[in-house]
Amino acid sequence: MSTIVIDTCAGEDQGREALAAAAIASLDLDVQMVVVGDEDEITSALDGLAHDAERLRVVHAADPLPENVDPRDIRQAAPRSSIAVGLELTARDPDAIFVSAGQPAAIVSLALQTLGRLPGVDRAALAAVYPTLRHRGPNDDPFALLLDVGATIECTSEHLLRFAAMGAAYASKISSVERPRVGLLANGNNPANAPLRVREAHHSLRGRDLPFEYIGLMRGDQVTHGEADVIVTDGFSGDVLVRTLEGVAATADALIRRAEARFKWRLGVQMLGGGIAKLREFTDWENYGGAPLLGLDRPVIVTQANSGSRAFVNAIRLGAKMQRLGVISAVAEAVMTSTAALGEEEPS
C-alpha cells in the first residue's frame, strides 16, 4: 500500500483544501495518508471532515518558510517546515510519495537535499502534462508531457538527454505508450538556429537506437498539436511555455465569461454550452493532478499554489499510480539504458 505524505501548509484556503483531499483519499483510496502541518489546526479541521482515522496520521511541522532566502538554505532556516519534514518522512519510507503545493523552488531544493537521486541523474526535472489534439496509448490519453518546467533553470545538453530518457519512461508507464515520441523544444526546426545545448542534444539523439522515438526539434506552436508525447526543454523555457499555455486557457475562459455577460451574445454562448463545458474540462489544470519531479528515488508531486481539493486528490491518485506501476524504477532503468546507448560512438 502506498503512503502519501501531503503538505497541508500550502494550497487553496491555507492548506485546508490539501487536508480535505487527504480526508477524501483516506476514505476512497487504498493508501496510507500522512498529513504534515500544524497538528492543532489539522485536528480541529479534521473534526468537520469525513475521514478514516485508521488511514490518516498527522505529523506536526509548522515552521513557516522564510521569505527571501536562497532555496538551498531553507532546510537550515526552517528545519521543521512542512516540506522539510514531509520529505524526510518520504525518504524513510520506500513506499512513500510526497505531494505539496508549496513553492516549487523550495520543494525542488529540499527534495534534492533529502531524497536520493537516481543513478546517472544529477539534475531533477519537473514534468507537467498538458492536453493536446492527438490522443495516445490504449487509454486514448490526450495528455503529453513537458519537462523540465522549472526545476533546472540552467541546463546542458547532457541534462536534456537525461530529461528525454526520464520523460519517455514516465510517459511509457503512465500513458501506456510503448515507444513514446520525444521532441526537443526549439526556436525552429532547423538545428543551425537552435542554442548550443539544444543543438548538441539534437545531434546526440538523432539516429540512435533508444527506448523512445526521437522526432527532432519542435516549435512552440507544435506543442499542443500532440505530435510528440514528450517535449524536452530547460527549466526556464519550460516554465515560460507552461505558464503561457495556462494563461491562454485562462484568457479564453475569461473571454467566454465576458461573452456570457453580453445580452446579444448570451444565446450563442448558451447554444455552445456543452462544447464550452467540455473545453473547460479539457483545459482545467485541476484535472491533471500535479507535476511529478523526476530523477529522484521517490515520487514527488508538485501541485499549483492555488490547488483545490480536486487537484490534490488527482495528485494523490497520480502518486499512487506511479507507485503501483513502478515508475521510479522504470525511469532509473531508462536513464541507464539511454546513458549506455548515448555513450556509444555517434552514428555516421
Partner: peptide, 17 residues
Amino acid sequence: GYTPARLANSVQDLVRR
C-alpha cells in the same frame, strides 16, 4: 489484516481528540 500503521493511527486519533 490491520497493519501496525493503521493501529497506531487509531491510537494517535484518540490522543489528538
